[in-house]
């Protein structure tokens, strides 16, 4: 494998990690708010807090890792995307700032406030939607590159069916991933009413999730035929993704193997994510930038990969400890610790 492919795979993998942990996190924030205003079930919210509190900071780092890494491995992306994304990127920053701060203010502050809960619940849902703009732009024809200047064609972006279908997919997937995780977590906690509530949410959000995925598939065909044809070459990955999805939903419907069901949901997104990513290669930005012409010099690439491996040696045991203490410790989940 070339350094270019290793680099982009590592980054893509971290973005996948962000997709999963952030979806659980953002969805949980939204459900927390929703349950609070609809006075559904206060027990649920305690459960959500117990999961979220120790891990929220870690979520954010996955994202930072990605954008610092992409500048490191592919410095030219700074030039293309940096200039074009000033406005949408700034909006994302504002959303992230609101989400992170008000989550902490609400959780660690002295009282649970409805306004704070609203702010972090809603901003969490909008963050993935705002990030999808980057993926949309990467498909090409939304940037005007002339006289050495890069400008975003905001009008085209806002009126494009493709870009809205990606936004829609992002929002419903967040709710689906999060609900399927919380179903399992509630089950482990022995919290029966919460378990039924999240099971219902999972079933509910599974339908728009799969519909949106299919919609995107065809929206790309119209928007970027070149990408669509390479997606067809990798169609087995998308079929696999569909199978994972169906099995997961089946398990949850049958109230069986809930842990496995969540892993299947993760696999569903894993195969779709990597199918999408692999078929996107070699382009980082259609048709201007590929991983080959935007790559960092070899010395730095090796240094970054070494740093990455060393970092993993440090992080994997730490993450394991975190998960053992808070995710897989039955006593903690049940609130006995």
């Amino acid at each position: 494998m070339s350094y270019e492919v290793i680099g982009i795979s590592v980054l893509w993998f971290f973005l996948y990690g962000y997709l999963i942990v952030a979806s659980v996190d953002f969805g949980a924030g939204f459900f927390h708010f929703y349950n609070k205003v609809s006075h559904k079930n206060y027990q649920v919210n305690k459960l959500i807090q117990r999961y979220l509190s120790p891990v929220w900071e870690v979520t954010n780092v996955f994202l930072v890792f990605f954008f610092v890494g992409i500048i490191g491995f592919f410095p030219d992306t700074a030039y293309y995307y940096g200039t074009a994304l000033l406005v949408p990127g700034s909006i994302s920053i504002v959303l992230i700032a609101i989400r992170g701060s008000y989550y902490a203010f609400n959780t660690y502050g002295s009282k649970d406030s409805k306004i704070y809960s609203f702010l972090y619940g809603m901003s969490g849902l909008l963050i993935p939607a705002s990030f999808t703009i980057v993926l949309t732009i990467s498909e090409g024809s939304y940037l005007d590159i002339s006289n050495g200047n890069v400008t975003l064609m905001l009008g085209e972006l806002l009126t494009s069916a493709y870009s809205w279908s990606v936004v829609f997919l992002a929002i419903v997937s967040v709710l689906f991933i999060s609900a399927s995780f919380l179903t399992y977590y509630a089950y482990k906690a022995g919290d029966v009413p919460s378990y039924y509530l999240f099971r219902r949410y999972t079933m509910f959000w599974s339908i728009p999730t799969i519909l949106a995925s299919v919609l995107i598939f065809f929206a790309i065909r119209h928007h970027n035929p070149e990408h669509f044809s390479s997606m067809l070459d990798l169609s087995w990955m998308f079929i696999l993704s569909l199978l994972f999805f169906l099995t997961a939903v089946f398990f949850i419907y049958k109230k069986r193997h809930l842990g496995a069901a969540f892993i299947l949901v993760m696999l569903q997104f894993f195969s779709a994510w990597f199918g999408y990513g692999a078929s996107h290669l070699p382009y980082l930005l259609y048709p201007h930038l590929t991983i080959y012409d935007g790559f960092v010099n070899e010395t730095m690439a090796i240094a970054l990969i070494m740093a990455f491996l060393a970092g993993l040696l440090l992080l994997i045991p730490s993450l394991y400890l975190l998960m053992r203490l808070f995710l897989f410790d039955a006593d903690y989940i049940q609130g006995n610790k």
Partner: peptide, 20 residues
Amino acid sequence: SLLWPNFMQLAGQTISLPLF
């Protein structure tokens, strides 16, 4: 990256290791 894209393009080549 958003405000200093040209600088980061150069910095990416030379000083991205400690950032990472």
